[in-house]
Write a protein that binds this DNA or RNA. Structure first.
Length: 426
RNA sequence: GGAGGAGUGCCAGAGUGGUUUAAUGGAGCGGUCUUGAAAACCGUCGUACUGAAAGGUACCGGGAGUUCGAAUCUCUCCUCCUCCGCCA
C-alpha cells in the first residue's frame, strides 16, 4: 500500500498518478479521506497516550503508598483511576475504529504509476516498447494449433485433467512432460547464472503472506483457498519468495537480494471461458519460474531494465518471436508502479500470448510487509521489490509447439537439447 | 492424533504481581592503546506511533481477560522440544 507520509507530502503527485489509472473525482476522494482519518488518528493517539501516562503515574504512586503502608490513601487513588480507565477504554475503541477505516481505505488504493507510464484505459493503449522486426515463422499448409498437436504427439491431455481434477488442469505426458521439465530446468539454470539464489518455497501460504504481496484483499477470488486450514494455494512464486523477507531489516550492503523459484501456479480464473482460452492459453495450474529482487530505491528502475533484458535473452535462446509492451495505467496490476509485459507470437493461432510480466512495485509491497534496510547513516528505509516471470511455461509451450511444427515433427530449440534429450518431438 | 515441557532483544540468558527504565554475558558499532592486529579498557547498541524538541505511549510467540499496576496470574490460539501413535 502507499505510504501515509507520501500521500500527505506528495498528494498532488499521487493524485495525478492515480488519474493515469483512470481514477475519477469520486474515487480520488479516498485520498482526502485518508488524510482526514490520519489527522484524527494522530490526535486520538496523543489523547490516548496522555491518558495512559496519567494512569501509569497513579499506578506507581499507589505502589509507593502501599509500600509505605498508607492503605487509606492508596484506596482513594484507586477510585480516581477508575474514571481514567473508562476514558481509556472509550479512546481505545475510537482508535481501533479509526485505524480500521484507515486501513480499509489504504488497502483500496492501488500503487501510483511511475511518471514514465503511459495514459490509457485498455490493453490497446499499451505502448509497444520493443517490436518484433524480424519475420514470423512460416508454417506448413496443415499447421495445427497446439491443442491439436498435443493430441497428435501425446504431449498433454486436458480431458484427462477433467477426469482427475476439472477443467483447466492439463496432464502432461511423454515428451510433453519431459519438455516441461526441460524448460523449468533451463529457466532455473539461466536465473542462477544471472546471480539469483534458487529457492524451493511452500506452495501454500497463510493469510499474512498473501496480504503482504497484495493478493489479499484485492484478488481474493483469484486464489484457491483451503478453508479448513485457512491457507491459500500460491498464484505465483512471488508470494512465498518475497515474503521470505517480510518483517526484516536488512543491511544496505546486502542489497540487491536476488531470488528465483520454480513453482506451479494456481489460479481460479473465475468466469473466463471461450475460444480464446482453449488449450494452454489459460489454465488453472501452470508452471512458472519467477525472479524476485529486493533493491535499493535508487537502483530499482535500473534493476527493472536488467530483468527485462534477462527475459529477452531467454526468448532469444528459445528462438521465439516476441514483443515487449509497456503497460498503460489502465492495464497495470494493482500493486505495480511500472510493468513490462512480454508476448510471444503463437503462429498457428495467429495471436500474441502473454508469457511474462516484469514489474517494479517500489515500496507498495515493502510497506505492507515492513521489508526495510538500514542505510549508511543507520536510518531505516523501505526497500523496493520487483519480480518477473522468467518464464511462464504453459503459453511458451503453446508457442514452441505451434511455431516449430514441421511435417517431420516439432523441432526443439537448440538451447533445450541438453535438457530434453531429444531434438525433435515425433 | 495423545501426554508432558518450553517460547524474553541480533545470539545466549536472568526475571513468577510494584524503583524493571527488561539484569548480565557475547556479537556488532564508535573510541583509547598499538606500526598493524589481538587483548584490555571506555562508550554505544530494539521497533513502531506521537511530538519542533524534551518527552510520552505501545510491544517479552499471537489474541483476549483479571488487577490501581502483568514479562510474571487466567483463558485461547500458534510454534518448537521430548515421549507415544501413524506415516513417504
Amino acid at each position: 500500500m502507499l505510504q501515509l507520509e507520501v500521500i500527505r507530502e506528495e498528494k498532488a503527485r499521487i493524485v495525478a498518478a492515480l488519474r493515469k489509472r483512470n481514477w475519477n473525482n469520486t474515487q480520488l476522494k479516498a485520498i482526502d479521506q485518508i488524510i482526514a482519518l490520519d489527522d484524527r488518528r494522530r490526535s486520538g493517539q496523543k489523547e490516548l497516550d496522555d491518558t495512559r501516562a496519567e494512569m501509569n503515574r497513579m499506578a506507581k504512586s499507589i505502589g509507593q503508598l502501599m509500600g509505605q503502608g498508607k492503605k487509606e490513601e492508596a484506596e482513594q487513588q484507586k477510585k480516581a483511576v477508575a474514571a481514567l480507565k473508562d476514558q481509556e477504554k472509550g479512546l481505545e475503541e475510537n482508535m481501533a475504529a479509526i485505524k480500521h477505516d484507515l486501513d480499509q481505505l489504504l488497502y483500496s488504493v492501488p500503487n501510483a504509476p511511475h511518471k514514465s507510464v503511459p495514459k490509457g484505459k485498455t490493453p490497446e493503449d499499451n505502448k509497444v516498447f520493443k517490436a518484433w522486426n524480424k519475420t514470423f515463422p512460416t508454417l506448413p499448409a496443415d499447421a495445427a494449433p497446439h491443442w491439436e498437436l498435443a493430441k497428435k504427439y501425446n504431449l498433454f491431455d486436458l480431458e484427462l485433467g477433467v477426469k482427475l481434477t476439472g477443467a483447466g488442469f492439463p496432464v502432461y505426458r511423454g515428451q510433453g512432460a519431459r519438455l516441461q521439465r526441460a524448460l523449468i530446468q533451463f529457466f532455473l539454470d539461466e536465473a542462477v547464472k544471472a546471480g539469483y539464489e534458487e529457492i524451493m518455497p511452500p506452495h501454500l501460504v497463510n493469510e499474512d503472506s498473501a496480504r503482504a504481496t497484495g493478493q489479499l484483499p484485492d484478488k481474493e477470488g483469484q486464489m484457491y483457498h483451503c478453508t479448513v486450514d485457512d491457507l491459500y494455494l500460491i498464484p505465483t512464486a512471488e508470494v512465498p519468495v518475497t515474503n521470505i523477507l517480510r518483517d526484516e531489516i536488512v543491511a544496505e550492503k546486502d542489497l540487491p537480494i536476488k531470488m528465483t523459484a520454480y513453482t506451479p501456479c494456481f489460479r481460479r480464473e473465475a468466469g473466463s471461458y471461450g475460444a480464446h482460452v482453449r488449450g494452454l492459453n489459460r489454465v488453472h495450474q501452470f508452471d512458472k519460474v519467477e525472479i524476485v529482487r529486493v533493491e535499493h530505491p535508487d537502483n530499482s528502475y535500473k534493476a527493472l531494465m536488467g530483468m527485462v533484458s534477462h527475459v529477452s535473452k531467454l526468448m532469444a535462446k528459445l528462438e521465439l518471436p516476441y514483443r515487449i509492451l509497456l503497460l498503460c495505467g489502465g492495464d497495470m496490476g494493482f500493486a505495480s508502479a511500472k510493468t513490462f509485459d512480454f508476448e510471444v507470437w503463437s503462429a498457428a493461432q495467429q495471436r500474441w500470448l502473454e508469457v511474462s510480466s516484469v514489474s517494479n512495485f517500489e515500496t507498495f509491497q515493502t510497506n505492507r510487509m515492513k521489508l526495510r534496510f538500514r542505510d549508511g547513516n543507520g536510518k531505516i528505509e523501505l526497500a523496493h521489490t520487483l519480480n518477473g516471470s522468467a518464464l511462464a511455461l504453459a503459453r511458451i509451450v503453446a508457442a514452441l509447439l505451434e511455431n516449430n511444427q514441421t511435417p517431420e515433427g516439432i523441432q526443439i530449440p537448440k538451447a533445450l537439447w541438453k535438457y530434453t534429450g531429444f531434438k525433435m518431438i515425433k
